[in-house]
Amino acid sequence: MKARVFYSLAFIASAAFAQDVTKVLQRDFHARGQATMDRVVQDGVQRVCTESRDRPPAELAKSLEADQMKTIAYPSGSLMGDWKRGESIAQNGRGLQWTDKPGAAAGGSCYNCHQLSPQEASFGTLGPSLRQFGKLRGNGQEIQRYVYGKIYNAKAYNLCSQMPRLGLSGTLTEEQIKDLVALLLDPDSPVNR
């Protein structure tokens, strides 16, 4: 409750403006292909991160992260898929755009922001390098769950992370996320070589 009061005092001005922005977006945008208009309406995470410029009050962040954690649906059995398929998912930057074919398999756009396999020299730096990710951390049950969860919903771990919620947004399937877990954790994956 205390956090909530603090929140409303600190952000009341910018909150009003964010609503104005949403109205402007609703007036100025149109649906195209699979990019429908419901996407311009902010959810709680987007609103709080916009209003706080990605620095949410700690208490509020903790409670919203806990909510996000509940969205993660873990499949039963092993979380490790096939790292080779994972590599091509990491390379693929398509999915959910109005130019993408609805229903076609999407990619994770991983290389846009992360360094992964050593043979791919064209990698982005918006996110941390993931070279040797599994080699440094092992590939036990706990780390598998962390990687799966982080890819499924990055906001459960860091509320205003710039990483998309690739599972929750419907970008990647359960199988695809498992393949990415393998890309990061399998000892045979080039990421760990």
Binding site: R39, Q42, Q46, T50, L96, T125, K155, P164
Partner: peptide, 27 residues
């Protein structure tokens, strides 16, 4: 305000990519 406004299926604002110095997408 639009520059920092996060929305859409991937929660991006302009600043998600154009927000920190020395970063790149791919090359």
């Amino acid at each position: 305000a639009l520059y920092f406004h996060r929305a859409g299926a991937w929660d991006f604002s302009c600043a998600s990519c154009h927000g920190e110095e020395g970063k790149r997408i791919r090359m």
